[in-house]
Computed example of a mutant assay.
Amino acid sequence: GWKTAYVVTDQFIAYTKSLSKYFVEHYANIGGKILLEDTYTNGDNDFSAQLARLQALEEKPEVIFISSYGSDIAFIIRTLREVGIDSPVVGGDSYDDPALHEALGERFGNDIYYVTHTFMSPEAHPDMPKFLELYRAMYGEDPDTAFVATGWDTIMLLAQATEIAGTTDGDAVARALESNEFNLLTGKLRYKSAEEGHEPDKAAAMVALEGGKPVFLGWRRPKNPPKP
Rank of each mutant, 00 (worst) to 15 (best):
Tyr114Phe: 15
Ser87Asn: 07
Thr150Gly: 00
Lys192Glu: 15
Phe131Val: 04
Leu185Arg: 11
Ala5Asp: 02
Lys21His: 09
Leu54Arg: 07
Asn29Val: 03
Ala159Thr: 08
Asp10Thr: 06
Gly43Trp: 12
His101Asn: 07
Tyr40Pro: 04
Ile66Val: 15
Leu132Lys: 10
Met120Glu: 02
Tyr15Pro: 00
Lys202His: 13
Met128Asn: 04
Tyr6Lys: 07
Ala14Pro: 00
Gly212Leu: 10
Arg190Trp: 13
Leu209Ser: 08
Thr154Ala: 14
Glu62Asp: 12
Pro98Arg: 04
Ser71Phe: 01
Asp72Pro: 02
Thr9Ser: 11
Ile13Phe: 08
Ala149Cys: 11
Asp127Ile: 02
Thr154Leu: 09
Lys192Asn: 13
Phe182Val: 08
Tyr113Pro: 05
Gly105Val: 13
Ser179Gln: 15
Lys21Pro: 00
Ser67Val: 07
Phe119Met: 11
Val83Gln: 02
Gly32Thr: 14
Trp152Gly: 00
Asn224Cys: 03
Gly32Ser: 14
Lys213Tyr: 06
Leu100Asn: 01
Asp142His: 02
Leu35Ala: 06
Pro129Val: 11
Leu184Pro: 09
Thr41Arg: 13
Ala103Met: 02
Pro129Ala: 08
Arg136Ala: 14
His125Ala: 07
Gly197Gln: 09
Lys3Met: 09
Ala176His: 04
Gly92Glu: 02
Pro98Phe: 04
Ala56Pro: 01
Pro126His: 10
Glu196Arg: 11
Trp2Ala: 13
Tyr27Ala: 14
Glu58Lys: 14
Gly31Val: 12
Pro214Gly: 02
Gln50Pro: 01
Met128Lys: 05
Met156Gly: 00
Tyr15Ala: 09
Ala172Phe: 04
Leu158Pro: 01
His198Met: 10
Glu37Ser: 13
Glu58Asp: 14
Tyr6Asn: 10
Tyr27Val: 09
Gly211Thr: 07
Ala56Gly: 05
Pro88Asn: 06
Met156Pro: 00
Leu19Trp: 08
Gly1His: 14
Lys223His: 12
Ile13Cys: 02
Trp2Lys: 14
Leu177Cys: 07
Val90Ala: 13
Asp144Val: 15
Gly166Thr: 09
Gln55Tyr: 00
Asp153Tyr: 07
Ser68Arg: 09
Phe12Leu: 12
Gly105Lys: 14
